[in-house]
Write a protein that binds this DNA or RNA. Structure first.
Lengths: 153, 153
DNA sequence: ATAAAACCTCAAGCAAACTTGAGGTCAAGA
DNA sequence: TCTTGACCTCAAGTTTGCTTGAGGTTTTAT
């Protein structure tokens, strides 16, 4: 019993096998390769052959996506190591700790938002200038008498 | 000194005024109206006129977006009340508590993800079947000998 | 009265992350 | 051998959330 991909040493995988074992559609494997997130070689018949480590790359990509990290950022992070290389445990750990920090940030921001939501949505402020919900430390309201959301009766 | 929109009673707002006071571009106001998130009437010259409460709608839309809620869901939530109506504080509160629950969920999921990330990415599992990171209670792995990500050496 | 600012309606474009389809090649088993 | 199933390449379509532009009307200010 050998693998679909014409080797018996199990050192390379066909795109179908990668798709099946990683749980993503073939089209997505193609897509990730086109985007530079994973890499492959070609056999004599121009078919893709993947190193087994690519399964791990895809797994990590999917985890990172669940964390809300965009593909381009994932690509950059994974790409800072030699292309297609088998990373060491320490390197994987480096990556995961980087992303964990991002997650921490996102969680913190969402938590703050949640805590402010109750206080603010019902309260009648929601002013661009004053309300913490409306002015999330990025947009500064216009100067002058102010852009008050609600009329003052 | 009257408002830009031809009334003096300040009961309606022009699109430019809405944009300025809500902090979103005019094109976005148009867009939200086209999507049914806000509503307007037209004056004799076919120009939009908005009730002041629409400022609040936009404010709430923006807050909900920060919470990661897609526009369509926001539309449905806002749309479950009479269109364009001035909601009571209790109703706003109902909405915010609904979204707070969603936020709670998202935060919980992200937190779980973060806690699992360290444990899993470096560990060599990441199996579709076994790893909590890979099998986030939605996709069930294929039966059979299993789709193991990493080779067993 | 007239110029400028604000507004109008489409239509098209953009970015992310993929999917779908057409038309053709390669490979593995009966 | 030959037929299927797996693969190949492009190109174009999908969704979400907007933005940009063209070409034309309305309002407002002088």
């Amino acid at each position: 019993m050998k693998t679909t991909a014409s080797g018996n040493s199990k050192r390379v995988l066909s795109v179908g096998e990668v798709a099946r074992r990683s749980g993503v559609p073939i089209s997505t494997v193609h897509f990730y390769e086109a985007k530079g997130l994973i890499s492959s070689t070609r056999n004599a018949g121009n078919q893709r052959r993947f190193a087994p480590v690519m399964l791990r790359y895809i797994a990590v990509i999917k985890v990172a996506q669940r964390a809300g990290i965009p593909l381009e950022e994932i690509r950059q992070t994974l790409g800072s190591y030699p292309p297609g290389s088998k990373l060491t445990a320490a390197q994987w750990h480096e990556i995961s700790s980087l992303w964990r920090d991002m997650l921490d940030e996102r969680i913190k921001r969402l938590t703050r938002l949640r805590d402010e939501m109750d206080r603010c949505i019902g309260c009648g402020c929601l002013s661009l200038e004053d309300c913490p919900l409306r002015n999330p430390n990025d947009v500064l309201g216009e100067k002058g008498p102010g852009a008050r959301i609600l009329e003052r009766p």
